[in-house]
Amino acid sequence: MAKYIVKRILAMVLTLFIIISISFFAIRLIPGDVLGEGANPELRAAMRARYHLDKPLIEQYVIFIKNFLSFDFGESINLYPRRPVFDVIAEKVPLTLVLNIFSLIITIPTGIACGIAAALKKNTLTDHAISTMVVFNVSVPSFVFASLLQYFLAYKLGWFPILLDLKAPFMSGAQLWSMVLPVLALSFGGIATITRYMRAELFEALSSEYMLLARAKGLTQLQATVRHALRNSFIPLCNVIVPMFMSVLSGSMVVETIFNIPGLGSLMTGSISTSDYYLTIAILFVYSLINLTSVLVVDLSYGIVDPRIRIGGGKTRE
């Protein structure tokens, strides 16, 4: 197992290296001057020297990688001049984290409940209603949901503030109230994904041979479902739920921009549009790290939840 984890981590490091290399060059392809027009020539020259922009691209890359390996990730150029990029990122994380955690608290139980209801009542009105909702939620993009919520609930009905309330203190009642719409907009897609998985897995489990045996043992339909079918259908659900937990750190660019939330997502869009090279690369690095780690955690958690892999795995691997 340890050998396997080490192998996976090495592969992850390599992947991350490739990602930051590609993003280093790709971001230079964006047209426009980092330093802005009209600044005076001396200042420009000083800035170019500070950020090594006067050297050839390859040399810049070598310097960048060297610094990166010594955990010097560079400074923000335009958005937050001279501040180390990870300080900027760390400042943005709490708000994104709060929004995403609220969204998860809604998403997971709702998704599981809808999935169970649909599987137990398969091919009835309940199932059809839930399945229609799933198709709708999966296919309508989140910015459409966000805009619709904003337009109807905030603008037309005036129930909620249109944008996130930033004047109110962090986590105050007023601010939490203004978080309702973005949290809802963040949740729809996740609910649909979990519902779809849960329905399929539970339905399969319900028609399995071990359910027949559980019933033959004398368990009622309810007991057999809870003790055997649900347990079994939760295992593949790890595949979707674990990445959701991991991704609470990464903000949604679309939803954060629409509701004017100064989180990681809007920092990302901001840094790209101002050609803030090092900040963009650092955010991409954080996002990639989160995603790669969650894939690894999913694979490992499978081994923890499923005894067939936990105990049986050792025999088959190498």
């Binding site: 399995s208 041979e209 071990y210 027949l212 045996l213 559980a214 033959a216 055997h228 347990r231 079994n232 295992i235 499923d306 005894p307 067939r308």
Partner: peptide, 17 residues
């Protein structure tokens, strides 16, 4: 009244001891 069904390979719950 107890029953034993045909397929012993899949009739036990795979994740329960």
């Amino acid at each position: 009244i107890s029953v034993i069904f045909q397929d012993p390979l899949s009739s036990l719950d795979p994740v329960m001891k």
